[in-house]
Amino acid sequence: MNNILRNCRSLLNKNYNYILFKNEHIIFRRNYAAVRKRFYRKTGILYNDGKYEVTLDQRKLKTPNGNLFTVESEPLALAVAAEWDTQKEKIQQNSMYLSTLCNTAIDNPNNLTKYDMVQYIVNYLDTDTILFQSNENEELYKLQVQEWDPVLDWFCNRFQVKVQKSREMCTPAISDEVKATISKHLLSYNFACIHGYVFGVDTLKSVILTLACAERFLTPEKAALLSRLEEEFQLGKWGRVEWAHDLNQQDLQARLSATVLFIHFNSSSWLTKQKSLL
């Protein structure tokens, strides 16, 4: 027993700060880095070697892993610079979703490959939010049919596939052809975009809604609303609590719109070509 505890302690010493009492009760304390104060006045961007960098005064912005922050698209770099500029006294990095997305794509802390991520997204399709519709509340079911089914129809038309929704716990599994079609579509994007897609899917809990939003069928506000449809339905009956529902709504919208911007700026279609004037 003592041996186990000792091993445990040596492990903990490395990773966590903890308090140990006499009778060996361990209390975990997770230490968060203190919020940094704003240490720069102006933010800007630089063009270097085909890529854009963000500057904070004369310093170059770096990612959490210490890599140089570079993106390929000018508007994205500008948006990130603007985001750093909006930090007032303290730098609230947890709410800077655009920077976070870029950082994750640059650092790739989990060492994921594009194929891993596409596989993750495609497997998510099995448990897509809008494929599971209510079997308890008829009113809610009607709302879901009215709001979700058009998106489902769009999805089936856009990718020429067939998926079935369900009112039961278990659905007929998504067929391999559908998965192949979607992964083929996703693989046509670059590595950074797929990071964006994963972030979007995790935000909305739905691959279909994320694709609909990235393909401009739904606005970010609408997609966030559809993702929270049941919540919205319930709070219509039980009342709205600002610090829970509104906070959640705004957070989802911010995350999703960051995803949309990130995907658009990283996909090659954003590059505009100007025709030479005659």
């Binding site: 609230q92 979703y97 606005t219 970010p220 705004q250 957070d251 911010a254 949309v260 911007l261």
Partner: peptide, 13 residues
């Protein structure tokens, strides 16, 4: 989308 991003981030904060 950019407008939505700016607005939602501000309201959330």
């Amino acid at each position: 989308s950019y407008l939505c991003y700016l607005r939602s981030t501000r309201k959330r904060q």
